[in-house]
Write a protein that binds this DNA or RNA. Structure first.
Lengths: 206, 206
DNA sequence: CTAATACGGCACTACTCAGTGCCGCAATCG
DNA sequence: CGATTGCGGCACTGAGTAGTGCCGTATTAG
């Protein structure tokens, strides 16, 4: 990539907005169509840019998409963005709020679009794991651990496995079955699997 | 599709073997590469056939792949093909045998390759669900239900949700995380999630 | 001012690949 | 035998698209 002309001397400076707009447009297109249908032309048009503005910043299509994945917004999955309602079950239910579901749905769609890239492009797996998979798992791990810490449940046999239940099953349903991840489905997982696998704390743990 | 000349009169008869070989080759290629990399040329070469032998039998690429998905072998997931070891946990462990894992891995790879097609081609979702998703879920549902029937566990709160845990989490790991679905991972799901969510039967149920 | 760089828009090349037509040969029917 | 159809192999067309070059314009440093 050519360095920004700030270090040099003359010339029009590269618009910092454009880069962000292009990445956002890339994520938008990824969330709407499949990887194979993501054309540079489409991204450029969506960003109100020319193709050169893209190729000036990234080596090619794959680098662009990798960069876009890396800047997927997962702030809502951080400890500070997660609900804290007092009980684990109502924390889970709070995640059904459109406020969070919007981000989840978008991440799911991006995840599925990028899937075709995963087996092909080196680095794609790591980018996806870092930007989407890990934050999701970490969010559920955090909620469960907090419930355990407050004495709501006994420490589970395998926290990591439990934390992946909801992301996995939601992705499987949305992706391979093309069915909506609605409240009814989420409740069936929450009550039928996750909470069922957690035990009341023994007296010794209180 | 043109009808077989058996009803008519003259001409060389269409080789019934060829059709099967082409479908098998399609599945092989699907299991090895991505949907976008599945070219008719590649399938034809793998089947030892010409492109015409394919287009004579199917309308186009999508129809070929749909037909191939529909004939995915899931016989090992039928009630008669599943292990019966006496306990649910050892039934699950028996599924780790290469005998079953081979089929599972193949189905997973085909599932991931076809995923790009799911959002695009009408009928692809139904074909995938019927040939891969449903048989997998049904197999786990059968094993769990049998364990419940023999009094090993109490009837679960939501059998369908539990039956989808292993297929979902295995697919998520293999597909989005590109990590092997090995014995260690399976054990963490079996013990940490599925069996943890099942309860010992109460005295009244015995 | 001039030089250098960014920008959008357009045209162009290069490549892949689905689908078709043609050729020669093989099989099957009358 | 001749007509018809299946078959593999080859060449070809046409569509889609990644990537590049050029043009006129805008912005910035010296």
């Amino acid at each position: 990539m050519t360095s920004t002309p700030t270090a040099g001397k003359a010339g029009r400076r590269r618009d910092p907005e454009k880069g962000a707009q292009i990445l956002q447009a890339t994520l938008d297109v990824l969330a709407e169509t499949d990887y194979a249908d993501v054309t540079i032309e489409l991204v450029a048009a969506r960003a109100g840019a020319g193709r050169h503005a893209i190729y000036r910043r990234w080596e090619g299509k794959d680098e662009l998409i990798l960069a876009a994945i890396a800047c997927t917004d997962s702030a809502d999955l951080g400890p500070d963005g997660l609900p804290d309602t007092g009980t684990l079950r109502s924390d889970f239910l709070a995640l059904l709020d459109p406020n969070w579901m919007g981000g989840s749905e978008r991440r799911l769609r991006i995840l599925s679009s990028v899937s075709a890239m995963i087996t092909r492009t080196p680095g794609a797996v790591d980018a996806v794991i870092k930007a989407i998979v890990d934050p999701s798992t970490a969010a559920y791990r955090f909620l469960i651990q907090r419930a355990v810490d407050r004495g709501e449940y006994a420490p589970p046999h395998n926290l990591d496995a439990l934390a992946q239940v909801i992301p996995s099953m939601a992705a499987y349903r949305a992706f391979f079955m093309q069915q909506v991840v609605d409240e009814e489905f989420m409740l069936s997982i929450i009550d039928g699997v996750v909470l069922a696998a957690l035990r009341e704390p023994s007296a010794a743990n209180r």
